[in-house]
Amino acid sequence: MPKVIVTVMPKPSVLDPQGVATAKLMKQSGLAGVGRVRVGKSIEIEFESTPDAAKLEGVARDLLSNPVIEDFRIETLP
C-alpha cells in the first residue's frame, strides 16, 4: 500500500504566530541556538493503489493547503 505524506507549511513571507510562539517556548526550555521556527502540518495518506500524481497534486494545492498563505510538499513512501 503506497503511502503519501503531504507537508503543508506557511509561505515564507506569511506571519506565523504559532511558529514565533513555539520558538520562544523552545528557548525557554533551554534549547540553545533556536532560530526561526515555522509550524505547519503533516498529512499522511494511505492509498490502495498508486494515486494519480496530477490529481494528488491538485488536491494538495487546492484542498490540503490554502494557496494564498501556504506551500506544500508531496513525499511518496514506498
Partner: peptide
C-alpha cells in the same frame, strides 16, 4: 495578485 494577504495575530 496574492501577496496582499495579511495574517492577524489576536494575541499580539
Amino acid at each position: 495578485d496574492r501577496p496582499a494577504v495579511q495574517v492577524g495575530d489576536p494575541f499580539r
